[in-house]
Computed example of a mutant assay.
Amino acid sequence: MDIGHKLRTIRKQRGLSQRELAARAGLTNGTISLIEKNRTSPSVASLKSLLDAIPISMAEFFSTLEESQAPKVFYKAEEFTEIAPVSEGQVSLRQLGNAEHHALQVLHETYPAGADTGPELLSHNGEEAGIVVRGSIEVTVDGNVAVLNAGDGYLFDSRLPHRFRNLGDAICVVVSACTPPSF
């Protein structure tokens, strides 16, 4: 997916200038320009701030049309939708199905060693839960910090400021869910 092009298209459809979007999102005009030209990839938190400023959810931004009339039930790994900018060493968030058509958003998250969701804390409507499948992850929720290992999990009100960081040397994999789909 061409994130920069899609962001520019939606920004223009909503009648926003780069300056106005930058001010709303707390970023610089230059940063918006670089993202729209695909010269830089925003952190998950920065992209969330940008989309909140438009406003549009991550699920809506990365939605894909399900082609058949009947609801799709089964998905191959390659059919998941990447909703976080993918580049070397960054967090990968892969969404199962089109969250716009469901009350639940399910993500397959991969955190390379040293990766995190960004220095800004995330906050959005809903509740989220997850289970660490592999590795370990530091989770911060409303000032509380815990390191979770494979088999451990979390469940919290997503309106509370939160952040995920892989402080280890190995990849961390998490399967998470958010309801309603607001991320």
Rank of each mutant, 00 (worst) to 15 (best):
T28N: 05
N29W: 04
G30S: 15
L34P: 02
L34H: 13
L34Y: 10
I35G: 14
E36Q: 14
E36F: 14
K37I: 00
N38C: 09
R39F: 00
R39C: 00
S43F: 12
V44C: 08
V44Y: 04
A45K: 06
A45Y: 03
S46E: 11
S46H: 06
S46W: 05
L47K: 11
L47G: 11
K48Y: 08
S49D: 15
L50D: 09
L50E: 09
L50Y: 07
L51I: 12
L51N: 09
A53F: 03
A53N: 13
I54W: 03
I54T: 06
P55L: 02
P55S: 08
I56S: 04
I56Y: 01
I56F: 05
S57K: 11
F61C: 02
F61R: 05
S63C: 05
T64Y: 08
L65Y: 01
E67S: 11
Q69I: 08
P71T: 04
K72G: 01
V73H: 10
F74R: 14
F74H: 12
F74Q: 14
Y75K: 07
Y75P: 08
A77Q: 02
E78K: 10
E79N: 06
T81S: 15
I83P: 07
V86W: 00
E88K: 14
E88M: 07
Q90G: 07
S92M: 05
S92C: 06
R94F: 02
R94L: 12
R94V: 03
Q95E: 13
G97S: 07
N98M: 05
N98K: 01
A99K: 07
E100Q: 14
H101P: 00
H102P: 00
H102T: 12
A103C: 03
L104R: 00
Q105A: 11
Q105N: 03
Q105E: 15
Q105D: 13
V106G: 01
H108M: 05
H108L: 13
T110S: 12
P112F: 05
A113F: 07
A113L: 09
G114V: 04
G114M: 12
G114Q: 06
A115E: 03
T117A: 12
T117Y: 02
T117P: 09
T117R: 05
G118T: 12
P119D: 15
P119H: 12
P119I: 11
E120S: 15
L121E: 14
L122T: 07
L122A: 10
L122Q: 13
